[in-house]
């Protein structure tokens, strides 16, 4: 693995995105539309958006980045470009980190746009730091990307890749504390939610939005980052140069 090859890969992926402005538009606009929809639904109860807004700020980027990443990398497998890359000096780490870097950049942009939208248009009020919340949203979008990268290695077709969403993301959404407090869930589910990265992603967002100090938020942030790195490493390990 070398920095030159990793950055070349990231640059290449960003160039591909640049040629596809419609996808960039969807990535930026879609979460804003969804956030706007929720704000509109609870127009008369602003406390609802204040309570759920920070969580949605985390959830939407995870969703979108998961899908975008898994489909893009799968396309690389089915088009034969991955096979060709595997005959070149590129390292498996160059490939995956290149993807992670370029999508992190995209995710950062998305998080900033969505955070600004939530604040100025949807009227989301938080006690804590906006910069901190945007930072968490970026981290979580990168988590979504790395989950997408890893699950695309299991999928054989684009159809399967899209189906990975209800397998990997939706169960986490249900038990991560968005629907009900985790302590109110049956014990087994609570334990399962302890093992779900989205749980920590959400808690970090809540801590920061509630005006908690960094000391309170950092264990959740560290766990989210740790999961992201672990999932990326798993992706590197499952990538094969030789296939049947």
């Amino acid at each position: 693995m070398t920095a030159r090859r990793t950055f070349a890969t990231a640059r290449r992926i960003l160039a591909q995105l640049r040629h596809d402005p419609r996808s960039i538009g969807l990535i930026m606009v879609l979460p804003c539309v969804l956030m706007g929809l929720v704000a509109w639904m609870f127009e008369d109860q602003p406390q609802v958006i204040d309570q759920f807004g920070p969580m949605l700020l985390v959830v939407f980027p995870v969703f979108v980045m998961f899908l975008v990443t898994s489909v893009t990398t799968l396309r690389e497998r089915t088009s034969g470009t991955l096979e060709r890359l595997m005959t070149t000096p590129i390292g498996k780490g160059d490939f995956l980190i290149g993807y992670a870097l370029s999508f992190a950049l995209l995710a950062a942009l998305q998080a900033v746009v969505l955070t600004a939208w939530a604040h100025w248009v949807c009227g989301l009020d938080i006690a804590g730091s906006w910069v901190g919340l945007a930072g968490v949203a970026v981290l979580d979008a990168v988590l979504g990307s790395s989950l997408g990268l890893a699950s695309s290695s299991v999928a054989r077709t684009e159809f399967q890749a899209v189906q990975m969403m209800p397998v990997v993301i939706v169960p986490q959404l249900l038990i991560c504390g968005l629907m009900m407090p985790r302590s109110a869930m049956p014990r087994v589910l609570e334990l399962l939610s302890d093992a779900a990265p989205l749980t920590y992603a959400l808690e970090a967002a809540n801590d920061i939005a509630a005006g908690g100090s960094w000391a309170e938020a950092w264990p959740d942030l560290a766990l989210t980052a740790g999961f992201t790195v672990a999932v990326l490493i798993a992706g590197v390990l499952t990538l094969r140069r030789r296939t049947a």
């Binding site: 890969t9 640059r11 290449r12 088009s79 060709r84 890359l85 070149t88 590129i90």
Partner: peptide, 19 residues
Amino acid sequence: SVYSDLTVSENLTYFAALL
């Protein structure tokens, strides 16, 4: 097996960088 959403020279530049 090249990237259809990149130009000819962008494709070549990427693979050249790897080498």
